[in-house]
């Protein structure tokens, strides 16, 4: 069963490319152009993992994460923050609060996928 991912980013190019990349790894990706669009999508869909940009106009990544964690129906969904504010080596990592983890936007998509997979199937990770 493919991992269901909700990809939230205001940057259309990044969103489109990352969606294709994750799909090529076997994920089922749904896109949202903003925090509000993501909340709207969550009313119907139930993804395994949300991958969201941190710095977005309107509702930013941290606020979105907080909304999800505050909603009992959504609180169990894994949340991965992406940000251009930290370096690929992870330095400059902001306090992510309620998110599961935070990755640099320049992280290779395979690393991102690994992170998503480990969150979605913790047992599977242990086998590896």
């Amino acid at each position: 069963m493919p991992i269901k991912v909700l990809l939230v980013d205001d940057d259309e190019s990044f969103r489109a490319v990352t969606a294709i990349a994750l799909e090529s790894e076997g994920c089922e990706v749904q896109e949202a152009a903003s925090g509000y669009a993501a909340l709207e999508a969550l009313q119907i869909a139930q993804p395994d993992v949300i991958v969201s940009d941190l710095d977005m106009p309107g509702l930013n990544g941290l606020e979105l994460c907080h909304r999800i964690r505050s909603n009992p129906n959504l609180a169990q969904i894994h949340f991965v923050l992406l940000t251009a504010l930290i370096e690929p080596d992870g330095s400059g990592l902001p306090v992510v609060h309620e998110a599961d983890c935070c990755l640099s936007k320049q992280t290779h998509f395979r690393n991102l996928y690994q992170q998503i997979k480990s969150l979605a199937f913790p047992a599977h990770q242990n086998l590896q």
Partner: peptide, 21 residues
């Protein structure tokens, strides 16, 4: 500038890698 450039840069490099597949 660096931060603002990261989004399109990441998109370009990821797209390039994907296109190579």
């Amino acid at each position: 500038i660096v931060h603002d450039l990261r989004n399109p840069l990441a998109a370009i490099s990821t797209a390039a890698e994907m296109l190579n597949r």
